[in-house]
Design a protein around this nucleic acid. Structure first.
Lengths: 215, 215
DNA sequence: CCGTTAGGTTAACAGCGTTAAGTTATGTAA
DNA sequence: TTACATAACTTAACGCTGTTAACCTAACGG
C-alpha cells in the first residue's frame, strides 16, 4: 500500500467502481442492449479496450452488475418489511409489495436481473441470494410458527408467493410502460396486488376457527 | 391469379412462409439473438437483403413470428383443457398446466414471446389475444356460475391465476436448463405446480359448506 | 413495345464485442 | 542507478451485426 501520489490516476478499485456504476446507469436506462463497451468507455473516459483490464468480457461485467443489483434489491426488501411484526401476515404482504415496487421503480434493471436468458449454474435457491428469498422464507416460517399461516412446506409456500408476485411483475413489464391503462384493466400493478391479496390470503392463512379435518 | 408457371420461383406467400418458418426455428433454438438476417437468408437460400422485400425490418419480422407463436400457444391451451367439463376446477387447473408445459417445451420461443423488452402499444388484455386469456377468463366465469369458484371480478381472478403460473414459468426459465435440480428444490416445475394447487384452490374456490360472512 | 413491378443481387456503412500489439508510467529488486 | 516487471492504457484491426443504396432481371399489363 505504498502510494506516494494519490492524485493523477485513479486507483484500481476506483476505476473499477466507476466502470460498474456507469454500466449500471446504462443498463438501467435501456437494458443490456444499451450497454456497449464503447459507449461505456466514453462515459468513464477511457478507450473501449481498457475495460478488458478489469472485466474479462461484457458478459462478466453484466454479471457483476447484476450481482450488485441483487444486493440493492435485498436491502430494498428488507426496508420494506422490517416495520411489520415478525410472524404477521402483514409482513409477508409488505415483502411482496416491496418486491413489486422495486421492479416498477427499476424496470430496466429488473429486466436484466431476471434476464430470462438462461443463466447456467443458477438455481432458484441461489438466484436471489442476498436478494430476498431467505427474507421471504424466514417471514413465512415465522408466520407458520405464530399460527398465522397454514402449516406446510415453507419452501413450497415461499416459492408460491414468490411466483404470484413475480408473475404479476413480469406480465406488467411485458406490456407498455404505463402499465395497463387500457379499458379492460384500469388498475396499477400495486392496486392489482392489493386486489389479489384476498385470493392469496385465503389460500395460505391458517383456518380461522378450530376446524375439522386437515387435508 | 393468372399464373402460367407454378414451378420455377416460389410464390410471394410461399417465400414469405419459408422465411417465417426458418425465423421461427432459429428463434426457437436460441432466442432473438440466434436470428441474424444473414443466417436466416442462408437457410432460405437467398441473400440477406432479399428478406427486406417481405419484412420492413428484423423487428417487424420478429413481431410477425411472435404473433404466429401466440396462435400456436392458444391452440395448445385449448387442447389442454377441452377434455375437462365446463365449470369445473379441473378445467382451470388443466389450463395452467398446459400453459406451463408449453413454456417448458418451447423455452426459447416463450422467452421471445414474453420478451420482457417493453412492447409499446401492448396491453395486458391484448397481449395473449388468440393466446389464452379469453380461454382462462371464460373458464373462470363458467366455474363461478357453476358455483365452483368464489364469486369475484373474473378479470381479477383470471389475472391472479395467470400471474401465479406465469411467475412459476419465468422463475424457472431464469434458472439453469435442468430446472431446480439443486438440493433445496428437487422438484420439476410441473411437480411444483401440482404442489401449489392446494394454495391456489383454497384461495379461489367457493366455501365448501354454507358459511357466514362474505368479505 | 414500352413501362412497371416483384424479387433478387452485390457493395457498402456504421456499430458491435473482442483480440493483438504497442506504449507509458509506476514500483521493485539487484 | 540500472534493469525488469507489471498495471493501465492506447490504436488498429477482425469478423460479425442490421440496414441502405444502387443495380439487375424476368414477368406481366396497356
Amino acid at each position: 500500500m505504498t502510494m506516494t501520489s494519490t492524485a493523477s490516476r485513479p486507483q484500481r478499485s476506483e476505476q473499477e467502481t466507476a466502470i460498474l456504476e456507469a454500466a449500471r446507469d446504462l443498463m438501467a436506462s435501456g437494458g443490456v442492449d444499451a450497454l456497449s463497451m464503447r459507449a461505456l468507455a466514453d462515459r468513464v473516459g477511457v478507450s473501449a479496450t481498457a475495460i478488458y483490464h478489469y472485466f474479462e468480457s461484457k458478459q462478466h461485467l453484466v454479471e457483476h452488475v447484476v450481482r450488485l443489483g441483487f444486493e440493492r434489491f435485498g436491502e430494498y426488501l428488507q426496508h420494506g418489511m422490517e416495520n411489520y411484526p415478525r410472524g404477521s401476515l402483514e409482513r409477508v404482504h409488505a415483502l411482496g409489495e416491496a418486491y413489486l415496487r422495486f421492479a416498477l421503480e427499476n424496470q430496466a434493471y429488473f429486466r436484466v436481473i431476471f434476464s430470462i436468458q438462461p443463466q447456467p449454474e443458477r438455481t432458484m435457491a441461489d438466484l436471489p441470494e442476498g436478494g430476498g428469498y431467505h427474507l421471504l422464507r424466514q417471514s413465512v416460517v415465522d408466520a407458520m410458527e405464530a399460527g398465522t399461516l397454514r402449516r406446510a412446506d415453507p419452501d413450497l409456500m415461499s416459492l408460491y408467493l414468490w411466483s404470484a408476485v413475480h408473475g404479476l411483475v413480469t406480465l406488467t413489464l411485458s406490456c407498455a410502460e404505463p402499465p395497463c391503462e387500457g379499458e379492460c384493466m384500469p388498475m396499477s400493478p400495486v392496486q392489482l396486488y392489493e386486489a389479489f391479496s384476498p385470493f392469496i390470503a385465503y389460500g395460505i392463512r391458517a383456518p380461522a376457527s378450530s376446524g375439522g379435518h386437515h387435508a
